[in-house]
Design a binder for these strands. Sequence first.
DNA 1: ATGTGTTCCTGTCCGC
DNA 2: TGCGGACAGGAACACA
Length: 283
Amino acid sequence: MPELPEVETVRRGLQPVMEGGVIVHAEVRRPDLRWPFPERMAERLEGQRVERLRRRSKYILIDLGSGETLIVHLGMSGRILVSGGRIGHYHHAEPMAKRHDHVVLHMADGATVTFNDARRFGAMDLTLTESLDRHRLLAGLGPEPLGNEFHEDCLLKRLRGKKTSAKTALLDQRVVAGLGNIYVCEALHRSGISPTRMAGRISRRRLRDLVVSIRQVLREAIEAGGSSLRDFRKSDGEIGYFQHSFEVYGREGKPCLRSGCDGCVVRIAQSGRSTFYCPECQR
DNA sequence: ATGTGTTCCTGTCCGC
DNA sequence: TGCGGACAGGAACACA
């Protein structure tokens, strides 16, 4: 699944297709993803003008003329395909409906936006735009890692007293919102912090480096068009496709890429998920 | 309150 | 090739 950079890439790709346009028809092909779709979702989408596409953490927020916002989360395997419409770049022929195409939005200009999610860990909900912040999925989220509120003191405060590992703490969306398994590994490697270090025991100085590393890693990935692995493969009209190379993620047994370090990358499990790091230069 | 393990679902890959 | 098991980018939830 997409982490913050991939979601941002999808948002940017979707913007010219949807923003300012009108949803003339919504096909909802099953009753749920992770949770049931909201009541009468199709009817509430149909005829609505799309005012704005925003992102909060890994959520895409689609503001509608009705004063409601469609919240979209791609989960682990969610993807969005675009076809038709007047925008040259996305001009594909009408594709055949594929397995796991769960929701299809038809725009007034002929473009279609298809939400495909094999594992169905994704989610959609509709809620009033004015109370969006209080929505159960968004209310508890920590700061945006690329925003101004995210800095050294903020992290210090949020990690203070935490007995869990640095890795696990950074995956917690209440600490900072938008990081996932890949970019946590990458940011920790860049800042030379061991993923196993107790989160509450990272010095202020190293937290400063960590903040910088997180921002760099995310910015670079967004610039590169959002990195992607198996679930974000290139296909007709799919947004978010990109091949990225990581310094530690997926590189078990390979040499550490930090200049001057002669260690090699190991893989361990932390709270049931793979962590990749270099025990030589991450302390 | 905080930390950890389980769970949802399908697809892919790797070893036998 | 077929089959079983491990694993996959998330995160809510139940429980100690």
